[in-house]
């Protein structure tokens, strides 16, 4: 891994910001250089949300990802349309196929279709669709370990949410299985 530049996008409430923060925090715990940059605007609940995460062995210059994303994780259709062209050639595109029927248009990126909401519902909580997606991403890139993500989860959400760890671990694992092929 030299530098991973990840765009995560969806609608407000799908947990794309949290997913990005967990990945960023995990990278920090593994002593990598990290940055997390959210889109911010007059958007409200149900609007679009996205963040740019950079995890690198080297010092990070600009935290902005333009058209050089190594991966895009898209949770809804507008995000696919908006960010497909921001991935660099040879990069990865993870599509939440539960909500997106459309296929990737580009043939120079590797597309993966993860039914994140269906998997989340199967394990009992639709709100962990983001963690399913993150699990799939980590399986493909091994950017950080699942243990680091769980460690980050404890730090970000505190002791009050520790009872949710088994569910989130499960979601990460099921996401990984979905792309293991």
């Amino acid at each position: 891994m030299a530098t991973e530049k990840i765009i995560m996008a969806g609608f407000g409430g799908q947990g794309v910001m949290s997913m990005g923060q967990l990945l960023t925090y995990s990278g920090m715990l593994e002593n990598k250089h990290v940055s997390w940059l959210p889109s911010y605007g007059p958007e409200m609940r149900g609007g679009t949300a996205n963040c740019s995460v950079i995890v690198s062995d080297n010092l990070i210059g600009s935290p902005i990802i333009t058209d050089d994303a190594t991966t895009a994780l898209v949770m809804n259709l507008p995000s696919l349309v908006k960010f497909e062209n921001n991935i660099k050639s040879g990069g990865k595109l993870l599509i939440n196929s539960s909500l997106i029927e459309k296929k990737a248009e580009r043939d120079d990126v590797d597309a993966y279709y993860v039914p994140a909401n269906e998997i989340a519902n199967e394990i009992g909580n639709s709100r962990v669709a983001n963690m399913v997606m993150l699990g799939a991403y980590l399986e493909l890139t091994k950017l950080v370990s699942v243990d680091s993500v769980i460690e980050a989860f404890k730090k970000v959400y505190g002791a009050g949410k520790e009872h949710l760890i088994p569910l989130n671990k499960d979601a990460l694992e099921r996401g990984a299985t979905a792309v293991r092929g």
């Binding site: 940055s35 997390w36 911010y40």
Partner: peptide, 10 residues
């Protein structure tokens, strides 16, 4: 600028 306010870094 707004980015410094909104972004996260260690």
């Amino acid at each position: 600028d707004g980015m410094i306010g909104q972004m996260m870094e260690p």
